[in-house]
Design a protein around this nucleic acid. Structure first.
Lengths: 231, 231
DNA sequence: AGCGGCGCTCGTGCATACAAGAGGGACGCC
DNA sequence: GGCGTCCCTCTTGTATGCACGAGCGCCGCT
């Protein structure tokens, strides 16, 4: 979840100090400025943000459930370090969440939303041509958000957004290869087409592929996971 | 998420005051002792738990992301009151999460886990005969947890558990009808059978039905949701 | 020289104190 | 008599202080 709240964006009233710090920390972690494993000292952060420890503590507690930081009771907080297994788990879940969102979107999107999605996709074409990775990355987040919105399911959007954020630090380099940019855009095109056609199953399948996990690798992965569990 | 942590149950070391209060509050909310909408006064809770406001505040902040309480910046906290739309959204997501868990479980469960699931299911038969709703309810939670465990995906388990908890206050009366108890157990049986057969798709479909939403109502629901959004 | 126990120091957990914002009631005005 | 406004109180946000626990190095022992 994007920090607290029932749906997407109910607490916009002037943010409290703790929320500002939490947002700042989250940003630093998601963008990779703070690397996994970095210890988060309360007094240090307090000094950095020009406040006392209290808001910092609250911020850390708010971030803990998001999975961005790990807090050990009496031992302090560090930037979360998911191991490979956990990352794989999260990718798998994210693929399904997005598939569900795409399927719902194919069925429930309003005409305006469809136009918006189409527009966003079109806008991203020029970024691909320009090879502007930074712009594309930002637009990509927006694109997927439009999908969540189109699914007309705030809770689903919350979970998907949270998962995406949590994976963000580990996908940073994923779009670096210029060809990946083009491929990504092509895949988006297929997804948009399926959605516009109202093809829920097709959209779901396309987005699973987009996340990088086909049905087959899905099963294979589950197979592979059986071993360590049996040990 | 079942309160912070990367996976299921890493911070078991002696709980801190704030964690104890959070657990207590969560219990009271999930069981319905605290009704949705009840304001959660910091000083009042502090007195009740014989502590200062500080741990209470931390507890409330921990609970906010779980969705059990809603915290308005500067206006205090109340027990969450999801509206009908949000509940529907959460049920839909939960059905899919459980379907995914069942599918994975069908593929990846270890023999021991399969025996455990079978045993749990068998144990619940006598509760049905005795009409012991309380025991069945508890066993039911355990049953679904075995499913999550069998899916070999901690993150999925986290999301599913969190969603289930969040819905718990609103499913309280669901098993009251004696016939519902029997039906529930029958449905469990079908799920177990499909899983033992390694039938991922079947298990997923069965559990969707178990949650109470067939594929058809799923689409219908999405259809219905389109109206208010278009307005 | 290797190992075990002890004390020290740093950091967190909790309590208390102070300040600002929100909500409600009473008063005054129209 | 109804409504708007101001003030007061209550609650939350933030700061500070104190105490326990954890981690670590040093010292003494074998």
């Amino acid at each position: 979840m994007p920090r607290r709240s029932q749906n997407l964006a109910p607490p916009p009233p002037r943010p409290t100090r703790a929320e500002a710090i939490a947002a700042s920390l989250a940003e630093d972690i998601v963008t990779g400025r703070l690397k996994p494993g970095t210890p988060l000292d309360e007094v240090g952060l307090a000094r950095m943000h020009g406040s006392s420890r209290t808001p910092v503590r609250e911020a850390l507690r708010q971030l803990a459930p998001t999975g961005l930081v790990q807090v050990a009771p009496r031992r302090g907080a560090v930037v979360a370090i998911p191991d490979a297994t956990q990352l794989a788990e999260m990718f798998l879940v994210m693929a399904e969440l997005e598939a569900m969102a795409a399927a719902l979107a194919a069925l429930a999107m309003t005409p305006e939303q469809r136009r918006g999605l189409e527009g966003q996709h079109a806008a991203m074409a020029s970024m691909v041509r320009a090879g502007d990775v930074a712009a594309y990355r930002a637009a990509n987040v927006a694109f997927h958000h439009l999908l969540y919105l189109g699914a007309q399911n705030g809770y689903l959007g919350e979970l998907a957004t949270a998962t995406r954020r949590r994976l963000a630090p580990f996908r940073a380099a994923q779009l670096e290869a210029p060809d990946r940019l083009r491929r990504s855009h092509e895949e988006h095109g297929e997804i948009v087409t399926a959605i516009q056609r109202g093809d829920a199953a097709g959209a779901a399948a396309r987005i699973r592929a987009h996340i990088g996990l086909t049905e087959r690798t899905w099963a294979a992965m589950a197979e592979a996971l059986r071993r360590p569990a049996a040990a």
